[in-house]
Each structure stands twice: as C-alpha cells, then as structure tokens.
C-alpha cells in the first residue's frame, strides 16, 4: 500500500479472512452487550428506528465531513430506544457507564501504547537499519491481521447486534449463540464485499493522508502512490 509492502488486493484478502475470524469467534461477546445487555431486547420497530437514526446521522455527518463514530451512533440510538420502550429503570445503567468509561479510556490507552511502542521500536532499530527494513514488512502484515481480527470482534458485532432478538424470533427460537454466528457471518460477508467494491478508494485516501503525515521525514519511500 502506501509503503509498498503488499498489494491492495492481498491486503483486502487478509483483512476479510481475519475480520471474519474475529467476528465468528468472539463477535458474540460484543453483540450480547447491545442486543441483550443495555436493553433487555430490541423489537422490530426498535430495529427499524435505531438503524435508520444511526444511518441518517452517519450520512449527515459524512456529508458535512464530520468525523464521528458508528459505534457511538448505534449505542446512542439503542439507548434512546431503551428509555422510550422500557422506561429509565430497565436500562442496564451500570453496563452503560462501563461502555462510556471505555470510550474515554480506549483512545487514551491506544495513545499511550502507541507512544510507548513507537519509542521502543525507534530505540530497537537504531543502528540496525538493514534488519529493520527486512523486519518491517512482516511486522506491518502482522499488525494488519491483528487489527482486522479486532475489527471483526468489535465493529461487525456493533453493526449486527440490534438484529439479535428479531432474528431469533424469525428463525423460530433458534439458540442465541447460533443466531449470533449467522449475524457475524452475514456481517463479515457484507464488510468483505464493501472492502472489495469500495475499499481501494478509501485505502488510497488514508495512505495519502499518512504519507502527508510523514512527508517531513523524507527518508521514507512512502511518497509513491499506491503500488
């Protein structure tokens, strides 16, 4: 990509494989939180409302170029639905507080870890530039796989969790675990399809933005466009 480690096509294949793995193995952990945690259950009217509210807000913000989080949109919508449909006291507030705390903690933790890892790597590769140039591609591919896996466990679950209750009823009372597996599989297929149809364009934007970030460090060969 930006750094010419692997082709976009191979990156997308790796991404699709590891995202599906994450969604299928651990997706249920997050799905349960919204479909069966913050509110006791979500009926079909709730699904239609939460999905259309989240969709409308995301489209509105995209149109005006505002950077927002799909996770926040969906959980906000589910919370509003929960208060309206189940009254205040039936919403699982202690879980909700944990979620909000994690929204503050996760960017800060990511910041701290990225800072430390950068310092560590910068120190480790000092004077070993040959080794670093050989190791970096492998490290980059490993991080791609890892972040795709994490994306599967978290984001695919976020996108499909509101359907848990309704799908369970539609499938004739199928066990919750199986319903979540089907939703995870559908979500993975959707994300992979989106990645292959439109991903290259988005990757182009991000790679370009990142090279802009790096422009002052001219030693990097990343200013070439996509490979």
């Amino acid at each position: 990509m930006g750094a010419r480690v692997i082709s976009i096509r191979n990156a997308l294949i790796l991404f699709a494989v590891f995202t599906s793995l994450g969604a299928l193995t651990q997706g249920y952990m997050v799905m349960k939180t919204i479909g069966r945690g913050v509110v006791p259950a979500i009926d079909l009217l709730g699904v239609l409302i939460t999905v259309s509210v989240a969709f409308a807000w995301i489209m509105f913000c995209n149109y005006y170029g505002l950077e927002i989080s799909v996770t926040h949109s969906i959980i906000g919508a589910v919370l509003g639905y929960g208060i309206a449909a189940y009254r205040l006291e039936r919403v699982n507030w202690s879980l909700m507080y944990n979620i909000i705390a994690s929204w503050i903690a996760s960017p800060l933790l990511a910041l701290l870890m990225a800072y430390l890892v950068y310092k560590l790597i910068a120190r480790a590769v000092k004077g070993y530039s040959l080794m670093a140039t050989r190791l970096m591609p492998a490290l980059l591919i490993a991080t791609l796989c890892y972040s795709a896996y994490a994306f599967g466990t978290n984001d695919i679950a976020n996108a499909t969790d509101v359907y848990v209750t309704v799908s369970q009823i539609v499938f004739g009372g199928m066990p919750e675990q199986n319903v979540m597996l089907i939703l995870a599989a559908l979500g993975s297929i959707g994300v992979a399809a989106g990645g292959f149809l439109l991903g290259a364009r988005v990757i182009g934007t991000v790679a370009f933005k990142i090279t802009r970030l790096d422009r002052s460090r001219a030693s990097r060969p990343s200013s070439q466009t996509l490979s």
Binding site: Q26, M29, V30, T33, T71, S102, L108, A110
Partner: peptide, 26 residues
C-alpha cells in the same frame, strides 16, 4: 472485547476509529 467479557460478562463495544485516532496521536 476479551478482557471485559471475562470480567463483566459483556464485551465492550468501543469505537475502533477513535482508538485509531488515539494511536495516531500517540
């Protein structure tokens, strides 16, 4: 996802885009 699931019984739905922003700031 994993750590809170074992502690609370629920995986926490975070925003991966904001975590990414945090990492870039780091």
């Amino acid at each position: 996802t994993t750590i809170p699931y074992f502690l609370l019984g629920y995986g926490i739905p975070i925003s991966t885009s904001l975590a990414g922003v945090g990492a870039v700031i780091g």
